Amino acid sequence: MEAGVTSVGAPRPLPAEEGGLASPLSVGAYECREILGSSIIGITYAGWDQARAAQVVIKEFLPAAFAVRQPDGSVAPRGHSSEQSFADALRQFLGAADALAEVRHQNIVRVRSVTESNGTGYVVMDHVAGETLDAVLRASRTLGKPQLDAMLPPLLDGLEALHSAELLHLELRPDKIVLGADGAPVILAYGATRQGFTAARQILSDRSKGRRLLHSPSLYAPVELYSADAKWGQWTDIYSLGAVLYECVSGEPPPTAPGRLIDDSMVPLEDLEATDFDPATLSGIQAALDTRPADRPQQVAAWRRLFTGGSGPEGVNAPLARTSARGAAVLTRDTAKVGASPARRVRWAVPVLALAAAGSLITYLDTSV
């Protein structure tokens, strides 16, 4: 099965006020036809590969905060003051896409092309028919043991392939996983690298003119994603995928990670009644959901061993996120203790706790399609 993405609902024309097109837009050998979704970063289209006569999905970089659609279909900065912001964010967008394009794995969306055209950047990805895990869970609420047992190994393999390519996902949720016609999962990875989030933060900062924006927290995000200066690493993605798996078993996602720092009301999977899952599977999921980054499995290889009843190695110097010369989110070795240090945890935990108690959390992460 080719890795790819699936549409979210039926394609629809994009209104002109949203930067839409009056007619299909050509991007080299590809054609943007109808919209699948839009976000602060840009627009996702149902597209067509004219050379292969095949459906594709195309992401166009069009941050409405400082870019605008021109009458000829091209994209341009809104004004002279936006030129540098647009150029910097476009470079980050393309850098993350270039890095993902190097990943070739059946459980990771395949990037066919990364190109600049019409004054902006485009990422062309394969399309695969199927349902998102989110849609499956909305219909059935949970997965049975055979389905979860079949889905878990390829999910771990795909995530490990992403990490081996020195990339982090940082936005794993049920709607970022597509189950193809054969039931095999495909992780939709583009736009979720750390560098992609850097571009999103820049856009949000420009849009808010320096004011912080309040957004609902993601139920699948670990607490370190609520801080700009916390260390992110493989353990960050492990928490998010663990939260997805927790919902597959329990029927509900875990409470928000910052809320769990105040009062951890998450029901341990081992306490659920009428479950036929293996104890090792339940304990493996549970291990990923520790609110303390340093106490989770630090790498997918160590996490995988927990699902077979083994134990992960102690004292692993896990990769930490850094930025490469090509502008993509990458990982590097750090000889310090993995995860955030106690002092660092205090810096981001205190404001997060205060905000959670007030009923709102600050995040710069864009969670739209």
Rank of each mutant, 00 (worst) to 15 (best):
P351R: 10
P154H: 07
F197Q: 14
R207P: 02
V136Q: 07
D182F: 04
S81Y: 13
A274S: 15
R104N: 14
L204R: 08
P293D: 13
A101W: 08
H105I: 02
T198Q: 08
G210S: 01
I41A: 10
L214E: 11
R138Q: 10
C248N: 00
L137K: 04
A343N: 08
H80Y: 03
E34P: 05
R212H: 07
R347V: 15
Q147A: 15
V128F: 04
Y220F: 15
I285N: 12
R344V: 10
P351Q: 08
E102C: 04
Q84D: 13
R173I: 00
S216I: 07
Q195C: 07
T363E: 04
A129F: 00
G284E: 01
V136K: 11
V186T: 15
S74L: 05
T132Y: 05
A356V: 00
P153C: 12
L133S: 08
R333D: 10
E60A: 01
L14I: 04
S117T: 08
K337H: 14
A356I: 01
L355E: 13
C248E: 02
V186N: 01
V350N: 09
G79Q: 02
I58Q: 09
W48N: 08
F93A: 01
T115K: 07
I43F: 02
L62V: 05
V330M: 12
A101H: 09
H127Q: 13
A230Y: 00
G37P: 03
T335C: 04
A329T: 07
L133K: 05
I203H: 03
K59Y: 00
R112S: 11
E18W: 06
L137W: 11
P217T: 00
R344W: 06
V316G: 04
L152G: 08
G339S: 05
V223Q: 06
P77N: 01
I40T: 14
S7Q: 14
L168S: 09
L289P: 09
A165P: 01
R141C: 07
G251M: 08
A150H: 06
A343L: 12
L94K: 02
